[in-house]
Design a protein around this nucleic acid. Structure first.
Lengths: 223, 223
DNA sequence: TAGATTGTTAATCGATTAACAATC
DNA sequence: TAGATTGTTAATCGATTAACAATC
């Protein structure tokens, strides 16, 4: 039952599921994709559901079940081919394209994010970096990025078709900058500050909270 | 059923559940605690299950159910008192104490983490900052922290009773530094690099992957 | 009182787990 | 062949949801 609808008859699951994925499945497939991409970079050709489970903390049976809902991607006795599974999941999640990101805040955190590849792997590209500090504006952060004034935000979001905004500003400024991003048309905000943000219902906020993971991990360590 | 065991008879849930929390419950309580702490800082006295749901993306009925398993913490028609709920959840999660963290990597990311309060809220305190770059060693990052050489790691972890290590080093160095942390006795690693880490079974790794959240959010935005 | 929100139940749905035949 | 791992089933458990009485 449950996810038998999208299964293709012959292992050729090129045609996608007619229905929207459930939140749980989409979240897990995204996790698998992240691990597979990294495993590929590290030179792995195949990976078993057990290895995927070790890295994602998702049950291996659950992983095989999630995948087999869309086709027979694995080889018994061997595992899954990393590259081919990456492209299968990309098809399912429809994220083969390029997605532009606006990053607000050119402090230490903002520069660390701009210089890293955490977002680059899945076709996310930081195309604009904003700050309000006049001393930072105009400064070159890497080959492609120069710090721009927040007044450019509206224009950039529209020109570059930006849907995702990343907040790397101090807590006090977070709500104000979030408002600007929303006004400019951003639909997804990734919030690296601690501030609880108020946004209209059509906008989604994801707040980074490493302390939450630690709290939970510590509970299981202590008990 | 499910969580009726730990309920105290009179709303006086001072005595804790005899059993270990399930992973789901512990994870959600940690989330509530994070939001409540922040709401308190922002001057909120009470909060409803609906508001908590908006910030955590957990169903409001689920939240009330999670909490009522441990006592009657709310006031009908009003909501939950923020401060009192914080201390109740702290009791349930047994995280009232102070926990020391070792941070490896004094680059832009490491310094951003050392200077922020993301970990400080729940009694986590960065007590030591390490780097291998001789030019960084000895540098003062804030009032309490001076960059130290990795050779001090073993000693510091033992002296300061450190259980949590945070990795803010380049991908290439991540495994090596993780090995050092493990060898020194750390049991929980928070990994800000993309590297898939190999650790012994008694050590837990949490990898920060903002791109995973974005992938998932984008899927629901695009469909 | 009227409005709001909790605490709680019951029904449904999705996740987890063990087990194992199929097969590479 | 022997060993390993997938694909799949069935049973159980936890999460989700709607609904509503209790009560602040």
């Amino acid at each position: 039952m449950s996810f038998s609808q999208p299964r293709a008859p012959q292992g050729e699951a090129e045609e996608l599921a007619p229905e929207r994925l459930s939140l749980g499945v989409a979240a897990r497939l995204s996790q698998y994709l992240q691990v597979l991409t990294q495993a590929g970079k590290m030179g792995k050709d195949t990976i078993s559901s057990q290895e995927l489970a070790d890295y994602t903390h998702v049950n291996p049976t659950q992983i095989r079940r999630d995948l087999s809902g869309f086709g027979k991607f694995g080889k018994r006795g061997v595992g899954y081919n990393v590259d081919s599974l990456v492209s299968q999941i990309r098809k399912i999640l429809r994220t083969s394209g390029q997605h532009n990101i606006a990053l607000s805040g050119a402090g230490r955190l903002g520069q660390a994010i701009a210089g890293s590849e955490i977002f680059a792997d899945h076709g996310f590209r930081v195309v604009a970096l904003f700050d309000i500090d006049p001393r930072k504006i105009g400064k070159r952060v890497n080959e492609q990025l120069v710090v721009r004034p927040s007044s450019d935000l509206m224009q950039v979001v529209q020109e570059d078709d930006i849907v995702v905004g990343v907040l790397a500003v101090p807590n006090e400024a977070a709500q104000e900058v979030a408002d600007e991003l929303v006004k400019a048309g951003v639909k997804i905000i990734f919030n690296y500050s601690e501030t609880l943000l108020h946004v209209p219902p059509e906008v989604t906020v994801h707040t980074s909270s490493p302390a939450v993971d630690l709290l939970c991990a510590l509970y299981f360590y202590l008990t």
